[in-house]
């Protein structure tokens, strides 16, 4: 059965958070919220787990640390510069390069995770998106079964939602 999308516009984040939480609690459909600023009430209502960005960052940093140590170590073995009885592989350069490359790839890993998980860059706007959500309004879009549409509308209006729009 085809789904229906219902949008409500809110003047503040608290109303949008109430609406999102209410729809989620009653299991009326899938909720997506839009806001011009990070709204912790909305995020708290819709996301209970920890973002996997940390895994991307950790993997990037781990890879960077490995490469930052392995490449200098390999070059020291490949063309030994033996000076004054010092060890062929000297530790300080490995620490310095390993740390810097770990930070570099950790940051880039985090950005890669952010872009992929946030589905960016995006060439098109989501259905029912209103550009005011980047400026001064909050939006909640609920994707639900047509049978649940009345309950969703009631829920959104009760939370203070205005300008309800619907798309089938």
């Amino acid at each position: 059965m085809s789904q229906v999308r219902i949008l409500a516009v809110f003047d503040d984040g608290a109303g949008a958070a109430r609406a999102a939480s209410s729809v989620r609690t009653q299991d009326l459909g899938e909720v997506q919220a839009y806001s011009p600023t990070p709204d912790h009430a909305i995020l708290g209502a819709l996301h209970h787990d920890v973002s996997p960005i940390r895994l991307f960052t950790l993997l990037g940093a781990g890879l960077g640390c490995f490469l930052g140590v392995a490449l200098p170590a390999y070059t020291m073995l490949d063309w030994p510069l033996i000076t004054g009885g010092k060890p062929t592989i000297s530790i300080p350069p490995l620490v310095v390069i390993g740390f810097a490359v770990a930070m570099l790839l950790g940051a880039l890993g985090g950005v890669t995770g952010f872009l992929s998980l946030s589905r960016l860059p995006a060439l098109s706007r989501p259905v029912l998106y209103d550009h005011r959500f980047s400026e001064d309004r909050f939006g909640v879009v609920v994707t639900c079964d047509p049978a649940q549409a009345d309950s969703v509308r009631a829920c959104l209006e009760q939370a203070g939602g205005e300008e309800l729009k619907e798309q089938k």
């Binding site: 990070p38 989501p126 980047s134």
Partner: peptide
């Protein structure tokens, strides 16, 4: 193409 969805903010903050 940023739209400020909850998913984007959630990962953005992290």
């Amino acid at each position: 193409g940023w739209v400020g969805s909850d998913r984007q903010w959630y990962h953005y903050m992290s």
